[in-house]
């Protein structure tokens, strides 16, 4: 099934990228698939490892399993004050 990525902030480069994953893929597994299957540089690999993932409605932890094609938001940490 197709997962469409939408990145915010430093993860904006992921917006519009798609990745095909099996049903029941966990967010933790998806995180690994993104770094191995998409052509991205090292800095984006670091970002993907620290991003929170969210559906259009709520934050999803690494154990959450994806049941259907959907848009996932990548929310990178922001550390300025």
């Amino acid at each position: 099934m197709k997962i469409e990525l939408r990145g915010f902030g430093s993860a904006r480069a992921f917006s519009g990228k798609n990745i095909d994953v099996p049903v029941q893929t966990s967010i933790g597994e998806l995180r690994h698939m993104i770094t191995t299957q998409l052509e991205i540089d090292e800095s984006l690999k670091t970002i993907i490892n620290t991003c929170a993932f969210a559906s259009t409605r709520q934050v999803l932890n690494d154990e959450y399993r994806l049941e259907e094609p959907q848009v996932l938001n990548l929310l990178p940490p922001v550390c300025g004050g």
């Binding site: 915010f8 991003c51 690494d62 940490p77 922001v78």
Partner: peptide, 30 residues
């Protein structure tokens, strides 16, 4: 937090032990 053109804000109520915290939002620390 605010950086670049990006910002994040959340109110964590901590009204009980099973309300979410910042580590629930993301266990991955930059």
């Amino acid at each position: 937090s605010a950086l670049g053109w990006d910002g994040q804000v959340a109110m964590f109520s901590n009204s009980s032990l099973d309300t979410p915290c910042l580590r629930c939002y993301s266990s991955r620390i930059p």
